[in-house]
Write a protein that binds this DNA or RNA. Structure first.
Lengths: 197, 197
DNA sequence: CCCCCATGTTGACACTGTCCACATCGCTTG
DNA sequence: CAAGCGATGTGGACAGTGTCAACATGGGGG
C-alpha cells in the first residue's frame, strides 16, 4: 500500500502518537519532529493541524478532559438512581482514570497556572457533570443545603483529587484493595462529614 | 567593580534566577542558556554546578521541599503543645506555601511519575515532619489508633493537597477569608471524620 | 473535466543542550 | 611564601529543535 501524499487523518495520528510517547517515557519531553517521524510525515506537516507545539499540547489536554467526561457519563449510567451512589460513581471514575492513564492525568493537570479564566475545552464539561450530579443530590436532600452545588462539587473534587494525585505520584500504592477501601472512606468522609445536612 | 573571572556563588545565583524566571512567566519553559545570561556568565558555566538541565530542575525541587519543611517547622514552633493545633498548623503552612509560591509548588509536584522510589531530597523530610506530628497526636490519643502514623499523615496530606491544588489551579479562589474557612473545614473533616477515634 | 485549496514537502534560520579543549584563578602544601 | 593543581569559567563545535516561507501535489466541488 503506497503511502499517499495526503495522509488522510494526520491530526488523529499525531495526537495518538503523542499519547503513546508520553506513556513510553513518562515525561512531556517529546519533540514535534519526533511526532512527525512517528506519523511517517515531514517535520512540518503538523503545522497544518496545530499552530505550534503549545496548541498540540492543549488539544491533548482537551481530549483528556473529554475522555474523562465520557468515563464519568458511563459510570453514571451504570450507577442507578440513588444520588449518593451516583456521586460515589463519579469519584470512582475519576480515581480510576487517574490510575489507568497517569500520563494523561498529569498532562491534564499541568496547566500553565491561573487557568480558571481560560479552561481547556472539556474541562468545563467534566466539572459540569459533577456539579449536576451534586445538584441532584441537593434536590434529593441528601446533602447540606447551605452550600451551592458548585461548592459541593469543588469540595468533592478536592477530596478525590488529593487522593488521586498522591497515588499517581506513587506516594500511595494503587492496588485494587486500597483503591476500594479509600474510595469508601472518601464517600463517608464526604457525605457524613463535609456535606452532612 | 570588575566582574571576577570566578563568579563566587554561581550555583545560588542560577537557582535564584530560575525561580525568578518561573515566577515571571508561569511555566517551566526557561532555557539553560538564558539562565546563564541572567547570571552574567557563559552558556557553559552552569555545567560546573549541574550535570544538566534535569539536575538543575531537581535541585530546585529539592530546595522547594526544604523550604516547605522549614515553614512547617516554624509553624509548629508557633503552634504550642495541643496536638490537634499542631496538625492544623502544618496544614495551614502547606496551604499558605502553595498559595504564596504557586510556581515553586507546581514545580515540586511536577515529578517524573512513579517517583516514590527516588524522592527528591527534602521531600522525605517534609513528609517526616507531618508523620512525626501525627505520631504525637496518636500517642496523645486524639486520633484513631488502628491507622499507622504514616497512613494518617498520607490522609491528611491528601486532604490538604487536594484543596491546595485546586486553589493553585485557580479553580477555587484563594482569598484570605476562604482560606481560613476551608482550613477549619479541613480540620474538622480530618479529626471528626477520617481520624476520629 | 479542470482547477483550487487543503494538505504535505523542502529548505532555511536562530537557538538550544551538551561535549570538548583551553584559560584563569585561589587554596593547599611543601 | 612560592608553586602548582583542582575547581571554576570560557570559547568553539555539533546535532537536533521550533518555526517561518516558498513550493508541490492531488481530491473534490464548480
Amino acid at each position: 500500500m503506497p503511502r499517499a501524499y495526503h495522509h488522510g487523518n494526520l491530526r488523529r495520528t499525531l495526537l495518538d502518537a503523542a499519547v503513546a510517547l508520553f506513556a513510553e517515557r513518562g515525561a512531556f519531553d517529546f519533540t514535534l519532529r519526533e511526532l512527525a517521524r512517528a506519523a511517517g510525515v515531514t517535520h512540518n506537516a503538523p503545522y497544518r493541524h496545530f499552530a505550534g507545539k503549545a496548541e498540540l499540547l492543549e488539544a491533548l489536554r482537551s481530549e483528556g478532559f473529554l475522555a474523562l467526561a465520557e468515563a464519568a457519563q458511563a459510570s453514571l449510567a451504570a450507577a442507578g438512581d440513588d444520588p449518593r451512589k451516583r456521586v460515589r460513581a463519579l469519584g470512582d471514575a475519576y480515581l480510576r482514570f487517574a490510575i489507568d492513564e497517569p500520563h494523561r492525568f498529569r498532562l491534564m493537570l499541568h496547566n500553565p497556572l491561573g487557568g480558571a479564566d481560560d479552561p481547556v475545552v472539556g474541562q468545563a464539561s467534566a466539572l459540569a457533570i459533577l456539579k449536576d450530579t451534586l445538584e441532584e443530590a441537593r434536590r434529593a436532600g441528601v446533602v447540606r443545603q447551605d452550600l451551592s452545588a458548585r461548592e459541593l462539587a469543588l469540595a468533592a473534587w478536592a477530596l478525590v483529587h488529593g487522593l488521586s494525585s498522591l497515588m499517581v505520584a506513587g506516594q500511595i500504592p494503587a492496588d485494587d484493595a486500597r483503591v476500594r477501601r479509600y474510595g469508601k472512606l472518601l464517600e463517608t468522609t464526604f457525605f457524613e462529614g463535609i456535606a452532612r445536612r
